[in-house]
Amino acid sequence: MIGKDFKSIFELLEMFPDEQSCIDYLEEKRWGGDVVSPFDDSSRVYKCKNNRYRCKNTRKYFNVRTNTLFDNTKVGLRKWFLAIYLVTSHKKGISSCQLAKDLRVTQKTAWFILQRIRTCFEIEEDIALDGVVEIDETFVGGKNKNRHWNKKVPKSQGRSFKDKTPVFGMLQRNGIVIAKVVPDTSVKSLLPHILKHIREGSTIYTDEWNYGNLSEKYNHDYIHHGARIYAQGEVYTNTIEGFWSIFKRGIMGIYHITSRKHLQKYVNEFVFRYNTRKISEKGRFDLLLQNTERRLKYKDLTTN
């Protein structure tokens, strides 16, 4: 069963007909046949009844859900697996209202499930880009002209931070993308991300925005969008702008509105799908299951 592929919801439900099949699959993906205690990874582990285990050193009981996004939830693993499949396979995501209908749970539960899953989308901080890298930023928050007359924000056109949140992106051509919510688009805010995530000596293409003196450590060239020039040979930022297009369509068409507090989680969701675009839906599903040791509590999610 472990090696069987699935390409549709029907095949997914066939592969996981009951809760036990989900537990067996999750144990294989998390431990690979060698159970490790979440309380002491050096401890010996004893198998008990009802899919439980006991840590010898701490004398605590645990199961495959312990200290993962599935921990302390009454929602069955079949529903969790279906939610993970829907989120990772739908190109623009799925709303909590729609997921609540699909899983037959409340909208509040569906939203919490989605936010827990999004926590597992976060990429490792030590990832570095090289070769040809395009960098750009976008703003999330909607256009002032589309707001109702009594909800318009004065002087918020263009690159305004009053009603919009900036997101900075770095995309390696034919590779992956890294995107971060930033407080503003100043050199002070953007340059540290560039130095951290792009290897020295790489080629960086940007628009005419000021990112600091990139030529000191990189081969830097830019395209002048203000003059309506969008490509000069290999110099363009069309690839990362294509990523922004997918991201914006998902936000406007599926989620409609996102708060500054939770925006990075939504960014991580689109980054994950983009970076796994060349692997199968099962491969994407398995990759997330291998990164589930991130428990998000509801009180931490809702506390300001």
Rank of each mutant, 00 (worst) to 15 (best):
N210V: 07
D207G: 03
K91P: 04
L195S: 09
F139D: 02
C97R: 12
V177A: 06
S186T: 15
E125W: 02
V105I: 13
K162G: 05
K143L: 15
V132G: 00
H197K: 05
T88R: 08
V167H: 00
G131M: 04
L195C: 07
S189N: 05
D163I: 01
N146W: 14
Q157Y: 14
I94L: 08
K145W: 06
H90I: 10
L99P: 01
C120F: 09
F112P: 00
Q107S: 05
D221N: 13
S89Y: 12
Q172G: 07
D136Y: 04
N210E: 09
I127L: 14
V167R: 00
D136S: 02
L103Q: 06
L214T: 01
D221L: 12
V187W: 03
D136E: 02
G158V: 01
N210Y: 14
E208G: 07
T165N: 03
G169Y: 07
S186W: 08
I113F: 10
S96E: 07
V105G: 06
M170C: 03
I94N: 03
F161G: 11
K162D: 04
G212Q: 01
T185L: 10
Q98P: 00
F112V: 11
S89E: 13
G158K: 08
R159G: 00
I113R: 05
R199F: 07
D184T: 01
Y205K: 04
V167P: 00
G175K: 06
K155F: 14
S160E: 06
L99K: 07
K92W: 10
K152D: 03
R104H: 15
A128K: 15
A128D: 06
R159M: 09
Q172T: 10
P183N: 12
V187F: 02
T206G: 05
N150A: 12
K164M: 00
I135M: 03
G141D: 07
P166D: 02
F112H: 10
P192V: 06
A100T: 03
